[in-house]
């Protein structure tokens, strides 16, 4: 009995360390890819100085950010100002617990896996609101207000599109949803839901063309205008981790999760397929970001309430009818 408990404890510690390490690693990989790919889209070489093709640049950048002074503005609400980056970091680490990297590579396969992810990642909004409010800067507050309004609005079509898939699979468990895709991946069955989810996920992660909370030309840097050093980098880590979470949900629900042509690598084969799919989607997000201009805030909201939510509802209704008939 006692050994079982300690086994569980060891497992949890290892999982926590791995998950947090992965968040940092992911941010470094994505930071590098984003800068390098945007550079190539813009016909310039990009990172070249540190290491071959600049691959060590992000390590150096991380060190630099850690070494920087965390400046707290004079009129800021100091406890909240310090709390906000931590709060934004937590909700993006927790979803990684239930994300299935492979058939066995998963910290915990909760029965309510999908609900857990969506519930936890909504907490992010709170961190942004706190950051915007406590900075005592009008630009930050603008960014925070926009971000909250946008995240809450876009959560609705996002949930509705995911619900359509859950109706087919009859389970919230991530492994269960992947198991249901043994014949056909759901982006073929549910193309509308897939598109709605993808669009909403751009808004959820505050990425261009919906990056209004950080609209540089209007709001300088939005809710993290006043943050420096590690405060700023925690927000960046959270943004990239959030991208990863959003793309993994898309992979699990629509692209068959870790399924793919079997590779002769044992348990790691499916994991490789999973990462390929997730990073493919993330590269797509980068590509879009560096190609399109930014929408306006009222246009963004109109798009959500006038087009995406009705479409998602109709899609849900059609799915319900079809599921009932079959």
């Amino acid at each position: 009995m006692e050994t079982a408990v300690s086994h569980e404890l060891v497992r949890m510690v290892i999982a926590a360390v791995l998950v947090i390490a992965f968040v940092f690693l992911n941010a470094m990989i994505m930071g590098y890819l984003e800068r390098k790919i945007s550079a190539h889209i813009q016909r310039r070489p990009g990172l070249m100085e540190v290491g071959p093709h600049g691959i060590l640049q992000l390590l150096i950048d991380g060190l630099k950010l850690i070494g920087k002074q965390l400046i707290v503005p004079k009129d800021a609400d100091k406890p909240l100002f310090r709390l906000a980056p931590l709060l934004s970091f937590t909700p993006v680490v927790l979803p990684l617990i239930v994300i299935p990297f492979g058939p066995k590579l998963q910290v915990r396969d909760l029965d309510i896996g999908l609900v857990f992810i969506l519930a936890v990642s909504s907490l992010n909004v709170m961190a942004i609101l706190i950051a915007g409010w406590s900075s005592n800067n009008k630009y930050s507050l603008f960014g925070a207000m926009r971000s909250v309004a946008q995240n809450i609005s876009y959560e609705i079509p996002m949930l509705l599109s995911l619900l359509a898939v859950v109706m087919i699979t009859n389970t919230f468990s991530m492994q269960g949803i992947i198991a249901a895709q043994n014949k056909i991946w759901f982006f073929i069955v549910q193309p509308v839901a897939f598109l709605i989810y993808l669009t909403a996920s751009f808004a959820e992660t505050n990425r261009a063309p919906f990056d209004l909370p950080e609209a540089e030309s209007e709001l300088t840097a939005g809710y993290h205008t006043e943050y420096s050093g590690m405060g700023f980098s925690l927000f960046m880590l959270a943004e990239y981790a959030n991208m990863f979470v959003v793309c993994s949900i898309a992979t699990v629900l629509f692209l068959g999760g870790w399924r793919g042509i079997p590779l002769p690598l044992g348990d790691y084969g499916p994991a490789i397929w999973f990462f390929l799919k997730v990073y493919g989607l993330m590269l797509f997000m980068i590509w879009v970001r560096w190609t399109y201009p930014r929408t306006r805030f009222d246009q963004l909201m109109n798009f959500c309430w006038k087009y995406m939510i009705p479409f998602a509802l109709v899609n849900l209704l059609v799915t319900a009818v079809v599921v009932k008939l079959i």
Partner: peptide, 16 residues
């Protein structure tokens, strides 16, 4: 102008 509208890439093309 495109930079003001949030599109980063065109300015590098026009600068070329």
């Amino acid at each position: 102008l495109l930079l003001d509208l949030g599109a980063f890439t065109p300015i590098l093309y026009s600068f070329d």
